[in-house]
Design a protein around this nucleic acid. Structure first.
Lengths: 202, 202
DNA sequence: TGTACATCAGTGAACGCGCGTTCACTGATGTAC
DNA sequence: TGTACATCAGTGAACGCGCGTTCACTGATGTAC
């Protein structure tokens, strides 16, 4: 295999175009927002013709679904890694995980919207997307189960508790992103403080 | 003023075009989703030329903002009316209001997304939008204050409690709309059951 | 090691489309006298 | 009550644009012999 020399400009075969498209799409989403996320813009950013993506995705929605899927994977990883920080204190773990979720949302608001805003019109068509979402949820449920074992979390079906926790933290993330937090709360306190405060109520 | 006779087709002046546009926009949003919501499609549905909306809105985003604003007004009304049903039982009120919120979301998913999904890129430009949002929030805070007075709701800043409650119910609404509720919970229980279950955890 | 060939990844021109917005206009309304 | 006129609401043609997708193609890769 020829290794392209430094001065050789853009070889005909990209080599890793699929990933490059996902990466560029995520960047575009983060920098410009959902309205800027067109197939052509992504291809442009990667430096490839606008027909090239069709070698890797059947259509635009499939690419969007893959970006959303990556979001769930990132989220699941964040939950897992955050849990590892205070492995002996389930209450602290839970609060940290909530804050990690909100941080993800604040860092990638447009990606979160892509994951949760019906932009992908036929999610059933993307089983990997659904599986990634469920995997992230399962991380959270496992955390609550551990908390119950340590008698730090109230009794009840851990998956139902996980749903409530997820809803709380997701709603909070959305409100923060959309700047819908009423000013007297929003101005006086940091997102982290607000998140932990809400977590204490559960 | 001439009252147009029944057979007179579409008088030159519509008479109430602004409201007709909002109504048609909402219908389009509900029936077809956000992707179908173009100025031209709205004008088409009202039966008016596609330039006519510019007499009432400076641009597309202003129309979207007005539709979102109506969403907040609807929401605030729903909260107010629901509270009135069980005026002596703040706990029941709160649960009912949460369920009313989720019902609104399930009935108008696309409108909820419009209100909370960054589609309107310069919300600062629409003070009425922000005021409508805050008014809805204030309804909720008032409810919690009343609950505290009746000693049914825990102590604490009622507006912070309201924020948590809002986040919970909003997150739940989003998860339900996007069908992100894990199947073992989602399939076994109705949205209403899930909402009330989550409310009990607060 | 060399060659023929199938396979695959990327190109660039072209398609048709619907969109937001502008503009000069026309028809209706209401007000001043 | 009647008339002139300013104001307003809606028209329809036109603009330029970027988009998703298709297509015949070309350049590169890897495999069989």
């Amino acid at each position: 295999m020829d290794i392209p020399s430094a001065d050789a400009p853009t070889p005909y075969h990209h080599g890793d175009l699929r990933n490059a498209l996902l990466q560029a799409g995520l960047e575009l989403l983060t920098e410009e927002g959902a309205h800027a996320l067109s197939l052509r813009a992504i291809a442009r950013r990667v430096g490839v013709s606008h027909a090239a993506p069709y070698r890797h995705f059947p259509d635009k929605e499939a690419l969007l679904a893959a970006i959303a899927e990556q979001g769930f994977l990132t989220l699941a990883t964040a939950v897992r890694e955050t849990s590892a920080h205070a492995p002996t204190d389930p209450a602290a773990q839970l609060a940290d995980v909530g804050w990690a979720y909100v941080q993800f949302a604040l860092q990638h608001p447009a990606q979160l919207r892509l994951m949760f805003s019906g932009v992908i019109r036929t999610p059933q068509a993307y089983p990997n997307l659904r599986m990634a979402g469920e995997a992230a949820f399962e991380q959270l449920a496992a955390l609550l189960r551990a908390g119950q074992r340590a008698q730090v979390i109230r009794e009840g079906d851990p998956r139902q508790l996980a749903l409530a926790a997820w809803a709380l933290v997701h709603g909070l993330a959305v409100l923060l992103i959309e700047q819908q937090i009423p000013p007297d709360i929003g101005a006086g306190f940091s997102p982290e403080w607000i998140t932990r405060m809400c977590g204490d109520l559960l």
